[in-house]
Nucleic acid binder design. Structure first.
Lengths: 213, 213
DNA sequence: TTGACTTAAAATGTATACATTTTAAATTAG
DNA sequence: CTAATTTAAAATGTATACATTTTAAGTCAA
């Protein structure tokens, strides 16, 4: 029988992989029955997922599976663009060679994982970025970035190829490492900006073409 | 007997007004007994307050009342400074005269409320700012700003006079309105930046002098 | 037919009881 | 005395049962 954290992971993944279609209205009882847990567990998970944007409140009863929109994706990317360069700039002053090494290891994992599903590659990709920001010394900023990533990652199950390409531009990642190793912080921030920008544009364009569900 | 939302408000206020001292470790049972509700209600409220930073996880059992630090305050202000001017810039393009009127009404309320406790004046002050950002068309951005404000507001119960002064510089507020009415967006953003900056500095200095509990 | 009212079903909120995990004190071997 | 182990108490996790609220279908009068 599923426990709280397992249900959390499972339901989130099911939403991401469109096992529950956007617009669907779910009730606590429905979910409790479907996943074989008590409503108490569902309630806990429900509140977490509501906070993280994986579910929306739906009137006075029920929760709704959110859809996708180019406007929302654009907003999320705008916020990333506003905060991630700041995090990089702050972290760059403190970053150690061992941290850079960790990041390089992560790049190797990404290279090795070409056969993984898009949403898992997206996760690795974020973990790489996250390592670069790790030493910024601003826990609230990191928390916000994690939240933003979560919300962006909701789109990764939806469109397989567009972001699969955009997120994993290995050359830019390696260039970032190299700039940080050389202490060239401002150039690194600029590269990060263009890196995020171009990924954003691809995502938004994809959503504008393929009318979102 | 208290219901969920009432307990949420009450516990939050009790934390803000230092009825529970920073560092205190609370258990579900303790709170359930103290406020006369069942643990289920406490659990719901607990998770909300954990998400919003009014409580911290404390190991595997219990939750801890957070303390205050100049570093945290500085980080929160940095984030405000990074996001609020953006919100204002985006909103300014769409803002209507009726919205500006609402904001002016809010200023009148602030003027009329000089006898209110500091944390209530802080709330009105935020509602004024919030109105200026309202039309930015970016719901996620507004959500982040609300979160940030919540976390800053935790400090308002702590130090009565410092921010009571800093937050309510009526002249700057009116100047902001005037600039927006005149369509002078970039100057308005600059003023907002210096407005937030000076309030931030006061808060951080206050915390550095009066060693936080 | 429409619209307001009634009422039954369904969903969520809340309390209690039980299960599991965690904590920390007590005990004992080394 | 120290450190590891046991064990009881306390805290949280989970399930079930009951209460309240919400929804929506159904009825009836205009």
């Amino acid at each position: 029988m599923l426990k709280k954290h397992q249900l959390y992971q499972q339901l989130k993944q099911d939403i991401q992989l469109l096992q529950w279609l956007p617009g669907t209205v779910l009730t606590q009882q429905q979910l409790a029955q479907h996943y074989g847990v008590s409503r108490i567990v569902v309630r806990d998970v429900q509140q977490s997922l509501l906070n993280e944007g994986w579910l929306l409140v739906h009137g006075k009863a029920g929760m709704q599976v959110p859809g996708f929109s180019a406007a929302e994706a654009e907003e999320l990317c705008l916020l990333r663009l506003q905060l991630e360069p700041l995090a990089l700039q702050l972290a760059a002053a403190n970053i150690s060679f061992s941290r850079l090494g960790q990041a390089e290891d992560m790049l190797a994992s990404i290279d090795a994982g070409t056969t993984l599903p898009a949403y898992q590659r997206g996760e690795l990709n974020w973990q790489f970025h996250r390592l670069l920001y790790q030493d910024c010394g601003k826990p609230h900023l990191l928390r916000l970035l994690d939240q933003l990533h979560q919300q962006v990652s909701r789109y990764l199950g939806y469109q397989e190829q567009a972001l699969a390409y955009a997120g994993t531009s290995a050359a830019e990642h390696r260039e970032l490492i190299s700039l940080l190793r050389g202490g060239n912080i401002s150039t690194a921030c600029e590269l990060l900006i263009s890196h995020i920008s171009s990924a954003s544009k691809l995502l938004v364009q994809y959503l504008q073409k393929n009318k979102a569900p």
